[in-house]
Design a protein around this nucleic acid. Structure first.
Lengths: 98, 98
DNA sequence: AATTTGTACTTTAATTTATAAAGTACTTTA
DNA sequence: TAAAGTACTTTATAAATTAAAGTACAAATT
């Protein structure tokens, strides 16, 4: 491959908000909903929808528990997610550095 | 800035197909419709719609003429497009290399 | 010479995606 | 106890993407 074919980029990852979520998650081991929402500057609804998409394809896993009687959802990137992200970055850079 | 805010990425450029078009155009001085379509592996309709979007915001300019009695449209990246692309790349890399 | 096939696109319509708004199930504060 | 959060989820609308159909030819075939 190694050309300008735009379909080589994983479109689950490519969306701006999901790319930001993934970039954050690879840099951080684990993060909860509120933390991600603030870093990524997303609305509640948006974050919920998009992180769910990442969960559906198993790029991200979540853990729900209660802390001080309040719900807290913690997210982690999975091994699959890590690999997909790496592949994405590789293809992106070889698309961009011509 | 310099954080994970996903809105920092120019969404006109960010779309997969438009990103590929821009990446191609910055590397090539000028290119015609068919050439771009093949490199980017887009359908006619898709390319037409998306390159038009890039034209509308003046990131790309076009020149239409006839070669051997057939229409040929040649595209070039503009100065504005060049700047926008550079900014996009900068923000992208600082989003990604954490 | 008429029909078919092909080229270089553009337009329209349908599907998908993204976003914002509203809703749920609480907890905390006044 | 009523109002104002918190941590999300769901739903509805708007926007973007894609595929299919259309236009205006040229070239090749019958």
């Amino acid at each position: 491959m190694s050309d300008f074919d735009y379909k080589q980029l994983d479109d689950i990852i490519h969306s701006r908000i999901r790319l930001a979520i993934m970039a954050l998650l690879v840099s951080v081991d684990s993060a909860n909903f509120v933390y991600i929402r603030e870093k990524v500057k997303a609305s509640d609804g948006n974050l919920s929808v998009h992180i769910r998409k990442l969960e559906n394809v198993k790029y991200v896993s979540s853990n729900k528990k209660f802390v001080d009687r309040k719900p807290v959802t913690t997210y982690k990137i999975t091994l699959l997610g890590h690999k997909a992200f790496e592949t994405y970055i590789n293809r992106l850079s070889n698309l961009l550095d011509k």
